[in-house]
């Protein structure tokens, strides 16, 4: 089984993207309150999706020769990323606004002075 340069690039992009996904999942578990958990969730949406989608788009572009259908498929994958980049701030703001209106108090260091 030969290892060409495309395998390395696509595999590397996918691996870094999955690492960001993993970091987002762990951050959602570890962080202390609802407001701070939104920051790793934004990390999933911005970086992990961008890297893994660009890896998959590169694979789709060069898989089975460069023809019109694969170019169109890669453009569609790029459009998914553009769409998520437009809508992700709106969704995040909707969640944090719901928390504010429901009256959840943010976790601060002052109110939890020694958290060990």
């Amino acid at each position: 089984m030969e290892i060409d340069i495309m395998t390395i690039i696509v595999g590397g992009l996918l691996a870094i993207g999955l690492f960001f996904f993993l970091a987002g999942a762990i951050g959602i578990i570890r962080f202390p309150d609802f407001y701070s958990r939104l920051h790793p969730a934004g990390m999933i949406d911005s970086m992990g999706l961008l890297l893994s989608m660009s890896g998959l788009a590169l694979f789709t572009l060069f898989d089975g020769g460069l023809c019109l259908a694969s170019v169109l498929n890669s453009l569609k994958i790029a459009l998914i990323v553009v769409f998520v980049y437009i809508t992700s701030p709106t969704a995040t703001h909707a969640i944090i606004d719901a928390g504010m209106r429901a009256g959840l108090k943010p976790w601060t260091k002052k109110r939890n002075p020694q958290s060990k």
Partner: peptide, 23 residues
Amino acid sequence: LDRLIGVNAIGSETTVLLIIIGV
């Protein structure tokens, strides 16, 4: 709302997983 954050994260990951299944 914490559950909603989890649902949103799973949805983003499902988008990538669907394309992987397609490949």
